[in-house]
Nucleic acid binder design. Structure first.
Lengths: 197, 197
DNA sequence: TCGACAACTTACTAACTAGTAAGTAACGTC
DNA sequence: GACGTTACTTACTAGTTAGTAAGTTGTCGA
């Protein structure tokens, strides 16, 4: 039985990929429908307006982020950081996708208000989490870096976001360089980490 | 007398702003025409296709970058770096614009091939320049940082790009934090720099 | 077995998109 | 002073966009 959430979830999965590849204004209901073999009206049935779809999309990323954070809570700072990096690395490896918050921020003034609001909340939440990891990580001696933790959080988040975008042009090794350097900048020698491909 | 380049230049100026605010797929010939009080066909007269306009746009940024680089050549690394940061700061201050390369990278798979090519060349050129500044800056003792200069270049460029985007949501101070932290990460105490607003 | 509801499709619209073809007005030049 | 060239406007097209209204089909509970 095709449950209620079946098509809805497929729409969100497809739209997520299209968002991360083409941007919010780079895909249409038509693209989604064609790819799933359904009609555009079916997409409108689940998400009446594109703003609705956008908000659902952002909230889906947000929920997944939150679940992951809860899961990683309590782990050593380096492991939490490694997981955060890995999320971005997976996007890079799966078709050169970019950070969903990044692409939406880039075209922020061309997306619906409600989407803007949702992005804002998600970004705030991730920044808060990152700040916490850096603060406690430095207190525990796991991490060591210059300057205030909130400034370091900005550099880390912005680097990952920008690196995903630039790696599209300069190639995947750029992301590796960014990640390796971030480890050094928080006082962890990349070579000392568990094997990472 | 309205010279040939008059309208053409106005179109490029307007399109640049729209690109940095809304993204390549976030503005149309109609938007440009309306803003300048001309017809869309006039825009097509100067730039037959949107790909042409996109390439001209990127090359305009590229030329300005190059002129600035030539101008700054020979200056101390810290001053060259300060100028590079200032370019981004100016975008942030002038309406929360983002890096043109950044926004085009974010929607890269939804922009014409020729534009992609142009972006690629510009980005490569800036990265080469930045790598050179970091390399010579460290050799001269002006800068000091861990890891290879090319990895540090990636972090710096990506941070500025990402910070401009995130500052749209989290506010201008985020950009200040990013810049201050970048200075620390290259071994320069932000307080030691000449007054910057 | 009879609704009622969920999950669609069919068929449509109005607005916007990039792009084109043909006309026009001003200007310099020979 | 006719002639080409530049820089447009007028008028149009074909395709795409988000969005809607009305119908269709299957399922499930009373």
């Amino acid at each position: 039985m095709a449950t209620k959430t079946d098509t809805r979830e497929e729409i969100l999965r497809t739209a997520s990929r299209l968002l991360q590849l083409n941007g919010f204004n780079g895909f249409s209901y038509g693209h989604i429908a064609k790819e799933l073999g359904i009609k555009t009206a079916a997409v409108h049935y689940h998400f009446p307006s594109k703003a609705d779809l956008g908000v659902a999309l952002v909230n889906r990323f947000r929920t997944r982020y939150r679940l992951w954070m809860e899961d990683a809570a309590g782990l050593p700072a380096t492991e939490q950081l490694a997981g955060y990096f890995a999320i971005h690395r997976r996007w890079q490896e799966r078709g050169s996708r970019v950070c969903p918050a990044g692409v939406l921020q880039a075209e922020l003034f061309a997306v619906p208000d409600e989407v803007r609001q949702a992005v804002s909340e998600m970004v705030q939440e991730v920044y808060d989490w990152l700040l916490d990891v850096l603060t406690t990580g430095r207190e525990s001696g796991e991490l060591s870096f210059a300057g205030p933790p909130d400034a370091m959080a900005v550099v880390i988040a912005a680097t990952l976001q920008g690196a995903l975008q630039s790696a599209r042009i300069l190639g995947p090794p750029l992301f590796d360089q960014a990640e390796g350097q971030l480890w050094r900048l928080v006082g962890v020698e990349p070579e000392s980490l568990p094997i990472r491909k």
